[in-house]
Amino acid sequence: MKDDMLLWDETLFKDPEVFELDYVPEHFDHRDAQMKSLRFCVRPALRGARPVNALCLGPPGTGKTTAIIKLFEEIEKHTRSVIPVHINCQIDGTRYSIFSRIYKKIFGVTPPSSGISFKRLFDKIASTLASREAVLIVALDDVSYLFPEKEIDHILYTFLRSHESLPGFRAGVIVAHSETSLRYILDHRVESVFRPEEIQFPPYKRDEIFAILSRRAQLGFYPGVLSRDVLDVVVDLTAESGDLRVGIDLLKRSCLEAERRASRSISEDDVKKAFERSRFLHLEHVLRSLSRDERTLLRIVAEQPEGKAQSGELYSIYHEVAHSGYTKFYEILKRLEALRLIETSFTGSGMRGRSRIIRLRYDPTEVLTRTEG
C-alpha cells in the first residue's frame, strides 16, 4: 500500500468535536467590542441590581450565540448570585416552556408537564430568587420564533414588569435576533421597560474568517492535512456564503471526502464536493427565520425562469398574491439580500437606467423544496 494512502483504521481528525456547530471555542476572537458591551449590560446584576437589557443583532453565523454562552460561562465562574439561562426559542417557543427551562436551572428538576398553572410555576421561581437575593438573566436566542401570537410581548412583560407586584424579583433579558434591527413592534407596556442596549454583530471579514477557520483546523486536524492553498478556498466559499458555520461544516465534510479517498490530505476537489452540501446549511437555517411574506416572495423569485426577474415583474406577482404595497415589498427585498438569499443588479434600462434584476443565489429547486408547506 502506498505511503500516502490512509489505512482503514486511521483518521485525519485529531479532534472532530471542534467541527460541531454547537462547539464553544476556548478562544472567542474578533468579538471583543460585543463582549465588552454584554459585560457592561450584566455588570449591575453582579451588585444585586437589575441588569441592562440587551438586543444582539446580526445575520446568522456572526457569533451571537457563542458570545452569550461565553458571557454566561464567565458569570457562573464569578458568582452564584446571578442565574443565567440560555433559551433556544426554536425549541422552547412558549412562555410555559421557557419558564420550565428556568425552573429546571434553579431547582435541578423539570416541573410537571400538567397539573401546575403558569402562575404557580412563576411564583415559585420569583419567590425563590427573591429569597436568595439572586438576579435572573435570560437569553432569548432566535427570538423571531416568539413573534407569532405576540408571545414575545407576554414573555418580556413577565420578566420585566413582575417586580412591580413581586418585590425582590429582579430580572434582565438578552434578546438575540438574526437581523440588523428588531423589526417587531413591541406592546407599549413592554417597550417602556425593555429599552435595550443594541449590540450589532456584523458578518466576519475575510481575514477574520481565515483566522477562525485556521485555528479550528489546527485544533481539529493532524499536521499536513490542510494546506494553506486549500484553506484559502474554504475561506473564500465561507465569505461568499456570509455564514461562518458554513466554513466550519465545510472543513468537516472536506476531511470526510479526503478520508473517503483514503488520502492523507484534503484537496481542492474535496472542498468543492463538500460545498455542494455545506452551502445549504446557511440556506436551511435562514429559511427557518423568514416570515410568511418573506417566504412567499422568495418562492416567487424561485419560480421565475432561471430564478431571476425584473423587480417590477416580481412586485406585480407579489402584490397579487400577498396584497401588500411596494414599501413592504422593497423592505423584504432588502432583507432577503442582506441574508444572502438573493442578489440584485441594475440593467441600465428602464426609468433613468435603474431597472433592477433580482437573482436567486441558490438553485431554485432547492429553495422551492425547502419552502413547501
Rank of each mutant, 00 (worst) to 15 (best):
M1T: 08
D3S: 14
M5W: 15
L7H: 10
P16K: 14
E20S: 12
E20P: 00
E26Y: 04
R31A: 07
D32I: 14
A33K: 12
F40H: 10
F40P: 00
P44V: 06
P44N: 02
A45F: 03
G48R: 05
V52G: 00
G58K: 00
P59D: 00
G61C: 06
G61H: 01
T62D: 01
T62S: 03
G63H: 02
K64Q: 01
T65R: 03
T66F: 12
T66E: 09
A67W: 03
I68G: 07
I69H: 15
I75C: 01
I75V: 05
K77G: 09
T79G: 06
T79C: 03
T79E: 07
R80N: 14
S81Y: 07
H86Y: 15
N88E: 07
C89D: 00
R95N: 05
F99A: 12
S100N: 04
I102W: 13
I102H: 13
Y103P: 13
K104L: 04
K105S: 12
K105F: 03
G108A: 02
G115V: 05
L121Q: 11
D123H: 09
K124N: 12
S127D: 11
S131Q: 12
R132S: 10
A134D: 15
V135K: 06
L136R: 11
L136E: 05
V138W: 10
D141G: 00
V143F: 08
V143Q: 05
S144D: 08
Y145Q: 06
L146P: 00
P148S: 11
K150H: 15
K150G: 13
I155R: 03
Y157Q: 14
T158Y: 11
F159T: 11
F159C: 08
R161L: 10
H163E: 07
L166C: 04
P167K: 12
H188T: 10
R189L: 15
E191D: 11
S192K: 15
V193E: 05
P196Y: 00
F201D: 03
P203A: 07
K205E: 15
I212H: 01
S214W: 10
Q218D: 14
L219M: 13
Y222F: 13
P223A: 12
V225I: 13
V230H: 02
V234M: 02
V234L: 04
D236S: 06
L237A: 01
S241K: 04
G242D: 09
D243R: 01
D243N: 08
G247H: 05
I248C: 02
E257R: 15
A258H: 13
R260D: 13
R261K: 13
D269L: 06
V271E: 01
E276C: 01
R277I: 13
R279L: 06
F280H: 05
E284V: 10
R288A: 10
E294V: 09
L297W: 06
V301H: 07
A302L: 08
E303P: 02
Q304R: 15
Q304A: 12
P305I: 06
E306N: 08
G307Q: 07
K308C: 09
Q310R: 10
S311H: 08
G312Q: 15
I317T: 13
I317M: 08
Y318G: 00
T327M: 03
K328M: 05
K334W: 06
A338W: 04
T344Q: 11
T344K: 13
S349P: 00
G350L: 11
M351W: 15
L360S: 09
R361E: 05
R361T: 08
Y362L: 12
P364Q: 05
P364D: 08
T365E: 12
V367K: 07
T369G: 01
